[in-house]
Simulated scan of single mutants.
Amino acid sequence: MSRRIKGLVEFEDDNGAVVRYLRHPHGGGLVSPAAHAHEGAWLAETSYVEAGAVVHDGARVGPGSWVDVDVVVGARAVVGSNVHLGAGTRVGSGARVGTGARVGERVSIEPRATVTADQVVPDGATVGGSGTGRRSGYGRAA
């Protein structure tokens, strides 16, 4: 069940709890009132940004993507369609996360790094990147 009141969208989850989101002015994505999405970011209408998350200026989040609890998406980072960014993940400025990627919890994606389409990044990994458009591998965070 959902209802709309001037930019407020409410859902009843499977446990009967009411979850509230606000529509972002650029793209219409759903943002928890306990999250912060910069007005200069663009969030696709079917994207979700959960409580404690921060989406910085110039970042783009594609359709069907889920920015989980306490995630930070850096300035000018691009998150493709149907991506899940696990809780506590950090996406650096200018980084790119490809369509369909599944990023685990507490992952660090360095500035300008690339996660390829459909890639699965395990919990606690670091995705390195040292140059624009350069794709780097990942390894376990120490």
Rank of each mutant, 00 (worst) to 15 (best):
A17V: 01
A17C: 03
A17G: 00
V19M: 10
R20N: 00
R20L: 04
Y21V: 04
L22I: 01
R23N: 02
R23Q: 05
R23L: 07
R23T: 04
P25W: 01
P25V: 01
H26I: 01
H26D: 01
H26Q: 12
H26L: 05
G28I: 07
G29M: 13
L30K: 12
L30N: 08
V31Y: 13
V31K: 12
V31P: 06
S32K: 06
S32G: 03
S32H: 05
A34N: 02
A34C: 00
A35I: 03
H36N: 00
H36Q: 00
A37Y: 05
A37H: 07
A37S: 08
A37G: 06
H38Y: 07
A41D: 03
W42E: 09
E45Y: 13
T46C: 10
T46G: 15
T46F: 14
T46K: 15
S47A: 15
Y48E: 09
V49C: 15
E50D: 09
G52T: 02
A53N: 07
A53W: 13
A53H: 11
A53P: 07
V54P: 02
V55H: 14
D57Y: 07
D57M: 07
D57G: 03
D57K: 11
D57N: 06
V61D: 10
V61I: 15
G62C: 12
P63L: 08
V67A: 11
V69L: 13
V69Q: 10
V69G: 02
D70C: 11
V71L: 14
V71K: 15
V73R: 15
V73L: 14
G74I: 07
G74W: 15
A75F: 05
R76N: 14
R76C: 11
V79P: 14
V79L: 13
G80R: 12
S81F: 07
N82I: 00
N82K: 09
N82T: 03
V83Q: 13
V83P: 13
H84Y: 06
H84R: 13
H84K: 09
L85P: 02
L85V: 07
G86Y: 10
G86T: 02
